[in-house]
């Protein structure tokens, strides 16, 4: 093996490594995060983690001022129905992420004017007749993804009420 061949091999291997990690890295990290959620409650089910602190922190750069709900979904077979109450008087949002880490949709408390949301998450091409009455349909760019609901603890005195309200959020396969 000449030095020139060795050098070409090094360059090719370096380019493949660089490209593969760059291309697949985000979705692998997302899959890992989704795996932690599904290990705890399964796929298409809502996890209600405790308020983040240094002892229970599992997601990078989580906010200790928010309560989170997380639902890892897979709509390859059936769509997902997400329902949630919006606690009054504080910031609230439901953020939808695809497997490539894109935040492809957000619904916040100012947009959820009826006091709650009822959302059907489907894959592209799914029949619209599946949509339950009163539900908004959102098409997920990838069949697997994650919904993250954030509720701001705007006052420590409201913590118990906010915690109770955010636990009304559910997600399930239809």
């Amino acid at each position: 093996m000449s030095f020139v061949r060795w050098l070409i091999a090094v360059v090719v291997i370096a380019a493949l490594t660089h490209g593969a990690l760059l291309y697949f890295g985000p979705s692998l990290i997302m899959s890992r995060a989704m795996g932690r959620v599904s290990d705890a409650v399964g796929v298409n089910a809502m996890l209600y983690p405790p308020r983040p602190n240094a002892a229970n922190d599992t997601i990078v750069r989580s906010s200790p001022d928010l309560l989170y709900n997380i639902c890892a979904y897979d709509v390859s077979g059936k769509p997902l129905l997400l329902t949630a109450e919006v606690p009054p008087g504080t910031y609230w949002s439901a953020a939808f992420y695809d497997l490539n880490t894109n935040n492809y949709r957000v619904i916040n408390d100012r947009q959820a004017t009826t006091g709650g949301i009822r959302v059907l998450v489907t894959k592209a091409g799914a029949p619209s007749s599946d949509t339950p009455a009163g539900a908004e349909t959102i098409i997920s760019p990838t069949t697997r993804g994650l919904v993250l609901i954030r509720t701001l603890i705007n006052d420590e005195a409201n913590l118990a009420a906010i915690d109770e309200a955010r636990k009304q959020a559910k997600c399930r396969s239809l």
Partner: peptide, 21 residues
């Protein structure tokens, strides 16, 4: 959080700030 983000920024955010809005 945007689909328009460049690949390196996407990876950096996945590592340091996954699930950014």
């Amino acid at each position: 959080g945007s689909a328009a983000i460049d690949a390196y920024s996407r990876l950096r955010i996945a590592v340091t700030s996954l699930l950014a809005l």
